[in-house]
Computed example of a mutant assay.
Amino acid sequence: MRLSEVILRLGHRRWFATAGRLLMPLDRRLIRLTGGRLSVTGWRTAPPTLLLTTRGRTSGRLRERPLLYAWDGDAYVVIGSNWGQAGHPAWSGNLLADPAATVTIAGQTTAVRATLLEGAERDRVWPQLLRVWPAYRDYDARSGRTLRIFRLEPVRRGG
Rank of each mutant, 00 (worst) to 15 (best):
Glu121Asn: 13
Thr41Val: 12
Glu118Arg: 10
Val125Tyr: 00
Arg2Asn: 15
Asp72Thr: 06
Asp74Ile: 04
Arg113Gly: 10
Asn82Pro: 03
Arg44Gln: 14
Ile31Lys: 02
Arg122Gln: 03
Leu117Tyr: 12
Asp72His: 15
Pro66Leu: 07
Pro99Leu: 04
Pro66Arg: 11
Arg14Cys: 08
Arg61Leu: 15
Trp91Arg: 03
Gly159Trp: 15
Gly80Trp: 01
Leu52Met: 15
Leu129Cys: 05
Leu22Met: 13
Arg61Tyr: 11
Arg13Pro: 07
Leu23Cys: 09
Thr41Asn: 12
Leu130Thr: 00
Leu23Thr: 10
Leu23Met: 15
Tyr69Asp: 04
Leu26Phe: 15
Tyr136Trp: 13
Ala70Thr: 10
Pro25Cys: 07
Tyr139Met: 02
Arg57His: 11
Pro25Ile: 06
Thr18Leu: 14
Met1Tyr: 14
Leu130Gly: 01
Leu38Lys: 01
Ala114Gln: 05
Ala19Gln: 03
Asn94Leu: 01
Pro99Glu: 05
Leu22His: 11
Gly158Trp: 04
Gly11Phe: 05
Leu50Gly: 07
Val78Arg: 00
Asp123Asn: 07
Glu64Trp: 00
Val125Lys: 02
Trp71Cys: 10
Gly93Met: 03
Gly42Cys: 05
Leu33Glu: 07
Gly144Phe: 12
Arg32Val: 04
Arg61Met: 13
Arg113Met: 07
Trp126Glu: 01
Thr58His: 15
Thr146Gly: 02
Leu68His: 03
Gly73Glu: 09
His88Arg: 01
Leu67Arg: 04
Arg124His: 14
Trp43Ser: 13
Gly93Trp: 12
Asp138Tyr: 03
Leu33Thr: 02
Arg148Val: 02
Gly35Leu: 10
Leu67Pro: 09
Gln85Arg: 14
Arg148Asp: 06
Ile105Gln: 06
Gly36Val: 02
Ala120Tyr: 08
Glu5Asp: 14
Thr58Glu: 15
Ile7Phe: 15
Gly144Met: 06
Ile7Ser: 10
Ser4Gln: 14
Leu50Trp: 05
Ala70Ile: 05
Ile7Trp: 07
Ser4Phe: 11
Trp43Cys: 03
Ala100Pro: 08
Ala111Pro: 07
Arg9Tyr: 14
Leu67Asn: 02
Leu8Cys: 08
Ile105His: 10
Ala75Met: 01
Ala19Glu: 01
Trp83Leu: 05
Thr102Leu: 03
Arg65Trp: 11
Arg156Gln: 13
Pro134Trp: 02
Gly119Pro: 04
Ser4Leu: 12
Phe16Tyr: 11
Thr104Phe: 11
Val40Glu: 02
Met1Leu: 12
Asp72Ala: 13
Glu118Ile: 06
Thr110Gln: 12
Pro154His: 08
Gln108Gly: 08
Gly119Arg: 12
Arg28Asn: 13
Pro134Thr: 02
Ala19Ser: 05
Gly60His: 12
Gly119His: 13
Arg131Gly: 09
His88Glu: 06
Pro25Val: 01
Leu68Ser: 06
Ala114Lys: 00
Ala86Met: 10
Gly56Ile: 00
Trp43Pro: 05
Leu152Gln: 03
Arg137Asn: 08
Ala114His: 01
Gln128Trp: 10
Ala70Val: 05
Ala114Cys: 03
Val125Arg: 00
Thr109Trp: 14
Val112Ala: 00
Ile105Asp: 06
Gln85Met: 11
Thr34Glu: 07
Thr45Cys: 14
Pro66Cys: 12
Ser143Leu: 13
Ser143Ala: 10
Ile149Trp: 05
Thr58Val: 15
Leu50Met: 09
Arg32Cys: 10
Phe16Pro: 00
Ser59Glu: 07
